[in-house]
Design a protein around this nucleic acid. Structure first.
Lengths: 126, 126
DNA sequence: ACGATACTTCGCCATATAACGAATTATAAG
DNA sequence: CTTATAATTCGTTATATGGCGAAGTATCGT
């Protein structure tokens, strides 16, 4: 996570990142484990460029980490030690959201997460 | 706190309320105890109508409570039991912000908080 | 080398939000 | 009753943000 001049800037970088429903949906999915961008695109039902921007905002805020594997970029909730305050934020986030995933949305998430890249990623252009 | 259709709406009502530097400054001041609106106006250096709107947003999100005493409305961080998730949010908020108040800003806050309404409130119109 | 796939960057547009001042309401003081 | 103070509501304006598609970059498969 970047350095900030003061605690307010640092804090509002986090809260602004969390102040959008689509980004929160993405984070809730990531509570279940890492996902590549095209899986998130499918779950969110938004344009690739939009989801990419959302994930970039979450990444800049330090809330998610990513790894590249071939053509795919996998995102996961940030876990890496170091920052105590960030860790507290992620804990709060998980406690708030984790229990409440259900219905069709959960079914779809499981389905998409089960599919490997070979069988899934290829039909997301709309 | 109001009822929400789903957890995402509930959560983003909180995070949107927290996604503004001036509102976070106000909350940080309230970590030190209750304050009336005109004290917050003085600390924030914004127009009365603007601060009133900010406090109304924080109140709607359930983050602050208020009590009326004569002409004054006193705001405080929400403490009232009941909602476990809200309590967790306030705890997270306090842990994040509480330690970091210092310098001129702290001096000014103490000064304003020490003044009673008789001696203070009367010169905030600008 | 070439085309396809995964993702990012950019520019545009629509909507949301923060700020102010003017007008209004409520309470206290003279 | 009239004036002053504390706070709210409303209308306006400037800026921020979320959405998209088009174009660009990177990597893989053939």
């Amino acid at each position: 996570m970047a350095k900030y001049r003061n605690i307010i800037d640092e804090f509002t970088t986090l809260t602004k990142a969390l102040a959008d429903g689509q980004r929160v949906r993405a984070l809730r999915y990531l509570c279940e484990g890492e996902m590549c961008l095209c899986q998130l695109i499918e779950m969110l039902g938004l344009a690739p460029s939009t989801v990419s921007k959302h994930m970039s905002i979450l990444h800049q805020a330090g809330l998610v980490e990513s790894r590249k594997e071939g053509r795919w970029i996998y995102y996961r909730l940030a876990e890496s030690g170091g920052d105590v305050k960030l860790a507290g934020t992620i804990r709060w986030l998980r406690e708030y959201l984790e229990a409440e995933l259900m219905g069709e949305e959960l079914t779809k998430l499981r389905e998409i997460r089960r599919m490997k890249r070979e069988s899934f990623c290829s039909h997301y252009q709309r």
